[in-house]
Design a protein around this nucleic acid. Sequence first.
DNA 1: AAGCGTTATTCCTTTAAGGGAACAACGAAA
DNA 2: TTTCGTTGTTCCCTTAAAGGAATAACGCTT
Lengths: 115, 115
Amino acid sequence: MDRFYPEPKGRIWLETEGQNFLGTGRIELLEKIEELGSLRKAAIAMGMSYRKAYYAIKSVNLLSSSPLVTFSHGGKGGGSTLVTTEGKNMIGRFRSFETSFVKFLTDQEQFFRQE
Amino acid sequence: MDRFYPEPKGRIWLETEGQNFLGTGRIELLEKIEELGSLRKAAIAMGMSYRKAYYAIKSVNLLSSSPLVTFSHGGKGGGSTLVTTEGKNMIGRFRSFETSFVKFLTDQEQFFRQE
DNA sequence: AAGCGTTATTCCTTTAAGGGAACAACGAAA
DNA sequence: TTTCGTTGTTCCCTTAAAGGAATAACGCTT
């Protein structure tokens, strides 16, 4: 028997119009935004540049039939970024998708352990 | 109802020792080698540079407990690259893994169509 | 010993993604 | 009207991955 065997791995995401819409990174970013109410703070919390976070979220909204986040700038606190009901709903569905995928990968392990 | 909805997508591969071992591209390359008996011809047939193909296959063998391909160089025909029995076996297991994954993704579509 | 087509390897260039920094725009509060 | 912290945008630089080209190494055949 081998000391090491191949492990099934993978990555999943969602596409709309044939373009990258949501993956694990963007979902984490949405969750941070939901938690902190600010795109900048969320980016910093994830060790990500604001620019990258901004472009990611901008792309998410462009590819969604209804916005997953809303923005306001200026005023008290300088502005804010909020996750909409649709956004929270999408986060939940993606996480379910992800959980099923982890199970799928685990189930596949047996086929690569056998001698 | 939306004109467009998110489509579940993904990519799968195998790792050994925490490193990329085999993915769709390398499997296709192995299949081409099996068909043509030559790494160079396989690379050309896939529109891939020989160098990239060479490094890919070299990595595959390094990460496998037993070689999936064998090489000979010099002599009649200049040399050859052959897929071992273990290699053919691995191709088959990966393709099964892939088939299951396509089914998994299809099954997930329903969760992103709803309203 | 020369020719051949492959495997094996090196070097340099090109290209795309991301990072950092800088700064304008905004609007409520003081 | 000034201050403040955020959103929004642009510029340039760095860095990692991929490509192309060139060439050595090899060993059977003639």
